[in-house]
Amino acid sequence: MPRGGARAVSGPAPDPNALRRERKTDAAGWRTLPADGRDGEAPEWPLTEATEREWDLWLDLWEKPQAVMWDEMGQALEVALFVRTLTEAERVDARVDIKKMVRSYLDSLGLSVQGMLRNRWKIAPAAPAPVESSARPAVRRPSARDRLKVVPSGEGA
């Protein structure tokens, strides 16, 4: 097995906030995904009959922001294989290689931080929560400076 050379995921992951942005690899740019996730129904399950746990995971995953990209790239089969592998990895007696496969899927589907960076995806900031009008204003406690008493020079000495 060769010892040196480049690997597919070697080196640091791309950073959308890096100071130097003129690299050839930046030509593709970054994709901002909606914070609310993907709208619509989950695609049809592409594998043999799903277990209840697989079905719950499947529905949950297709509501995530990353699902927008999976839909665009036609990755329903890859997501289903991830779900099936994840349910197998959740077992107490799961093999280590199954758990490694789950980690690989997390990265390739953009479900991990490293995967998001490598895919050049970022999630849009969530909309701020509306402020209730019935909220009482916060009571300001006196600071240490407020409690200090100014003494004219020469007094009290």
Rank of each mutant, 00 (worst) to 15 (best):
M1P: 12
P2D: 04
R3H: 04
G5T: 01
A8H: 08
A8T: 12
V9H: 04
S10Q: 15
G11S: 05
P12N: 12
P14I: 10
P14K: 12
P16F: 06
N17W: 13
A18P: 00
L19K: 13
R21D: 14
R21I: 02
R23W: 13
K24N: 10
T25H: 07
T25E: 15
D26S: 12
G29M: 08
W30P: 06
R31K: 14
A35Q: 06
D39G: 12
E41D: 15
A42T: 09
A42W: 04
P43N: 03
E44M: 07
P46R: 07
L47I: 03
A50Q: 10
T51V: 12
E52F: 07
L57C: 10
L57A: 04
L57I: 02
W58V: 03
L59N: 09
L61P: 00
L61I: 03
K64Y: 02
K64G: 00
Q66T: 03
V68C: 14
M69C: 08
W70A: 05
D71F: 01
E72K: 14
E72D: 14
M73E: 15
M73K: 15
M73P: 00
Q75I: 00
E78D: 12
V79K: 04
F82A: 06
L86H: 10
T87I: 11
A89W: 05
A89M: 11
D93R: 08
A94E: 08
R95A: 13
R95G: 03
V96Q: 13
K99H: 11
K100R: 12
K100S: 07
V102E: 09
D107Q: 15
D107C: 10
S108G: 05
L109A: 11
S112L: 09
M116H: 02
R120M: 13
W121L: 14
K122P: 00
I123G: 00
A124T: 08
A124G: 06
A124N: 12
A124M: 09
P125I: 02
P125D: 13
P128A: 09
A129S: 12
P130A: 13
P130D: 14
V131I: 15
V131E: 14
S134R: 08
A135D: 07
P137A: 02
A138C: 05
A138N: 04
V139H: 04
V139Y: 03
R140Q: 14
P142T: 06
S143V: 01
R145W: 01
D146M: 06
D146S: 13
R147W: 01
L148G: 10
K149W: 06
V150F: 10
V150S: 11
V150D: 09
V150K: 11
V151D: 06
G154A: 14
E155W: 10
G156Y: 06
